[in-house]
Nucleic acid binder design. Structure first.
Length: 192
DNA sequence: CTTTGGATTGTCT
DNA sequence: GACAATCCAAAGA
């Protein structure tokens, strides 16, 4: 991995389709105020995608999805949890579903009230609780504090499958994971 | 190990 | 008024 990823590098990386970015994010290291780890699971949401919040156009809630690439889109799910996305091309975003915790373990354990490293960040809501993400982090650039994102810069062994928790476009294999990782939110079906 | 149902609130129809 | 890009605890296999 490169020692540092510049803001321009990030914009170039994210100014692509969510499917490409979602794949390439696996293996990156993401931190919020020094707390975080390795991205091991993502999902892609595209503009023409009936499962995407952007599908029916811009609203106050999803406006960050139509903003510049390389910023966050944070929303509340089921009235209870926060979910974190990285914005790609307009109307496209990648949902960050799971991290392998590597930094700030004690902070995450305190926030989650749970010590099992496999479950600290295994799911979008759990990840946001562990990292302290809420609506105040919506629409903020990934290149500045409190965020830190270091791309892996190397190919990673990937698995993919259908996205979780949606009712439309169920068959698209736009969920991506690090092959063999035990930190994903739900195991991927073995490749045929 | 897997399955099931309840919690809870912003957003859109 | 319905529903949602989820999580957890409890119960069954």
């Amino acid at each position: 991995m490169t020692p540092e990823t510049t803001p321009a590098d990030l914009v170039a990386f994210f100014d692509r389709s969510a499917v490409e970015v979602g794949r390439d994010l696996i293996g990156a290291t993401f931190c919020v105020d020094g707390v975080g780890g390795i991205v091991v699971e993502t999902e892609a949401y595209e503009p023409d995608d009936p499962a995407s919040h952007s599908f029916r156009g811009e609203t106050p809630r999803n406006r960050a999805m139509f903003g510049p690439p390389a910023q966050t889109y944070v929303y509340r799910s089921y009235g209870i949890h926060w979910c974190l996305n990285f914005v790609c091309r307009p109307g496209s975003a990648v949902l960050i579903r799971a991290l392998q915790p590597t930094m700030g373990l004690e902070t995450m354990i305190a926030r989650r009230g749970l010590a099992d490293p496999r479950r600290l960040c295994a799911g979008p809501g759990r990840l946001c609780e562990a990292l302290g993400i809420d609506l105040s982090h919506d629409g903020r650039p990934l290149s500045t504090n409190p965020f830190a994102l270091a791309l892996s810069g190397l190919p990673q062994p990937l698995v993919s499958g259908p996205r979780i928790g949606i009712s439309r476009a169920v068959d698209l294999p736009w969920r991506f994971g690090l092959a063999g990782s035990r930190y994903v939110s739900k195991t991927f079906r073995q490749p045929a």
